[in-house]
Design a protein around this nucleic acid. Structure first.
Lengths: 204, 204
DNA sequence: CGTGAGTTTGACCAGTTGGTCAAATCGAAG
DNA sequence: CTTCGATTTGACCAACTGGTCAAACTCACG
């Protein structure tokens, strides 16, 4: 078994390959629907070999989740209280949409988990995510109180950003089925930009 | 085996119980994550007894899906080309939100399936749903051309309605974790109403 | 080289799962 | 209350799945 010392060249390569393969398989089939054999094959390893690097299927999944949560929350972290409110929010929306385009598997991994009640994520949600959201909600409330953006329910505003942007990753099949040849990500940025600009511009 | 003639009293009762149980179990665990035994127990039957009414797990799932799709699309069907555009759209949003509140399991069932690539639904999507959407997109385009609602991408507008409303059902755990005691459905109607009113009111 | 830690694997195991089947039981019409 | 189709079930099976293990192999390093 891999010991506590510095990881070997092979260890680094294989652990990375496993996590990449696990992301692919878990995001497509969910935790229960994925098999260790599938992941091993996708990583170019035998099942026992994979289990030499990770003690169990659950361990792979947990490591994936915790490793990805930070990446996922980074755009919200970057929302700057000192910046221009409208630019900050539109920037956040844009970055979130970009992530749906660039990292759809990550989005679907979380979607799968949360739709099923987030049995393995509920802790992170009620601590890390909740703290971050509480913090940014205060920022939004400040902006609204100052009249720099229109008054709305800040939490629902955040939910709306998440749902609108992640929809393009999570419901990709449906979206593409209904858009035909047109790439959804062509018109989406302008659509969301207009939506939030109209919604958040203070009444004159 | 149940024959082609009129269904018995017992047949009716048990098939209904099975479908109800299947909705509960499938929506929580997805197709692969659900077991026939779980469904049978939830329906108050033994596994072989359940399989006396449905030939396979897959058959139960498919019947559930096709039976539910109509219900799910009904609110969009009801969008009346003759009505007042803003009222029609806001009404549609309201009805869709109501469905997320009243039928969250149905919403999660579809979400689960679509996130995983809709392997058992893609046909219905590309026929029934596509036709309905194409039809209603024309209605929306007509309203926009007449200047009765603001100009936007009609398909993205529909996507936005679906994602914003279904989010409250599909991501229920997350939403409730972040809202604490406050019921999400208290403020959601007003939030969405304002959002679409601001977004779709034509420039004066 | 040689050697020991690091890596890989075939064989295997126990538990789960979807599904079958013959036999037993039930229920409604005569 | 009999009878026959409808219903229910215990026992069973084959395939699959997560995980183990001892033996074999590989590789970096002295």
């Amino acid at each position: 078994m891999a010991q506590d010392r510095a990881p070997t060249r092979i260890q680094k390569k294989n652990r990375a390959a496993i996590l990449e393969a696990a992301l692919e398989v878990f995001s497509q089939h969910g935790f229960r629907g994925a098999t260790v054999d599938q992941i091993a094959t996708a990583a170019g390893l035998s099942k026992p070999n994979l289990l030499y690097y990770f003690p169990s299927k659950e361990a792979i999944f947990k490591e994936l989740l915790s490793g990805l949560l930070d990446t996922w929350l980074a755009p919200l972290h970057a929302l700057d209280p000192q910046g221009d409110p409208m630019e900050e929010i539109l920037g956040y929306v844009g970055r979130k949409l970009q992530m749906s385009r660039d990292y759809p598997r990550e989005s679907r991994l979380f979607a799968n988990e949360i739709v099923q009640g987030a049995p393995r994520m509920i802790d992170s949600l009620s601590t890390d995510l909740k703290n971050l959201v509480d913090e940014k909600v205060q920022v939004l409330e400040g902006w609204m109180a100052e009249g720099r953006i229109a008054q709305t329910h800040p939490r629902h505003l955040l939910f709306s950003i998440w749902s609108l942007t992640q929809h393009y990753a999570d419901f990709d099949v449906q979206v593409r089925t209904l858009m035909g040849d047109e790439d959804p990500f062509t018109a989406a940025p302008a659509f969301l930009d207009t939506l939030y600009r109209r919604m958040l511009t203070p009444e004159r």
